[in-house]
Design a protein around this nucleic acid. Structure first.
Length: 288
DNA sequence: GTACAGGCAGTAT
DNA sequence: ATACTGCCTGTA
């Protein structure tokens, strides 16, 4: 913890920013499902945080909360934009989180055209039906099922988890991962190549692909554009595009806008997106 | 009842 | 390329 920026780090605000879904608070402790592990953290009396994972994993918090990022360099770069510079001060402690790639892919496929409470309901349902039960800290948890476990289910089994028409997409993701799609390879690929591969999967479009790339495949230049971000762009960043003020954008508009945003914000565009997204939700008074 | 919520694929122009 | 539509499900 060499810098004040890191000392400002706040896992709670990061978790509540809507990028992760399977976290819950019990008393003074937070518990999250990260693939086959349960991750726990608690604030100690001196204000610092104590992290734990079950089954034990080394330095899980460094991975999940991206302590390996040079946040000073990142913040310095995205601060070139005055609006984002203000948001960095307004929301100290907010960070990108690094998710388990498989879980992330399933999560965001379930996230299409719905809201956070529903996404949580669907994902918890998947864990209860196909995950593994664990006892930890006197509580019961279910791991996030692997693609192989989900792939044993039929589309109708998946529908029973409340997925609706997304069941077909979840099945397609499970088939891809157990088949040709190598997520480890995508981590080593560049942004555009990795995105192209993700887009081949049924149910994965521009926005979901960018979420998976940013949150789990080490592509910090990914800048997911959902309706919230589109609203922000329409308001704050009119000069970056010629789009009408609107929530909806076409696939082509997405591509053009996406490239311009990457050109403007740089290789850490995704960090800027995270702050803008969080701000939009705050402004809208979202609580969940 | 009906509008809506963190998109996507399919179809028609 | 762009426009339009239907889609599960739960909530307001």
């Amino acid at each position: 913890m060499r810098s004040s920026l890191l000392q400002n780090f706040n896992p709670e605000i990061s978790i509540n920013s809507g990028q992760v879904f399977l976290w819950e608070k019990h008393g003074d402790c937070w518990y999250g499902i990260h693939g086959s592990q349960v991750v726990k953290f608690a604030r100690k009396p001196d204000g610092s945080f104590e992290f734990q994972s079950f089954p034990e994993g080394s330095d899980i918090e460094k991975k999940i909360f991206r302590f390996d990022d040079d946040v000073e360099a990142i913040f310095s770069e995205i601060s070139r934009d005055p609006f984002v510079a203000g948001l960095l001060k307004a929301y100290p402690g907010l960070r990108l989180m690094r998710q388990d790639p498989e879980q992330c892919m399933f999560s965001f496929v379930c996230a299409s055209n719905t809201n956070i409470p529903m996404i949580r309901r669907m994902l918890y349902s998947l864990t209860r039906k196909f995950g593994q039960k664990l006892q930890f800290d006197g509580r019961e948890f279910f791991t996030f099922p692997t693609a192989a476990q989900i792939n044993k289910a039929t589309v109708n089994d998946l529908r029973a988890c409340g997925l609706g028409y997304r069941a077909k997409a979840v099945k397609a993701v499970a088939e891809s991962i157990t088949g040709d799609l190598d997520l480890g390879f995508l981590v080593r690929s560049n942004y555009h190549d990795a995105k192209k591969e993700l887009l081949k999967v049924y149910g994965i479009g521009n926005k979901i692909a960018d979420c998976v790339l940013l949150f789990s495949l080490e592509k910090t230049e990914a800048f997911p554009i959902d309706v919230w971000i589109a609203r922000a762009l329409a308001g704050q960043y009119r000069w970056l595009h010629n789009l009408p003020v609107s929530d909806k954008i076409t696939a082509h508009q997405y591509d053009v806008l996406s490239e311009r945003l990457r050109g403007y914000f740089g290789k850490y565009s995704g960090y800027a997106q995270q702050y803008i997204y969080y701000h939009m939700r705050q402004q809208a008074g979202k609580k969940w």
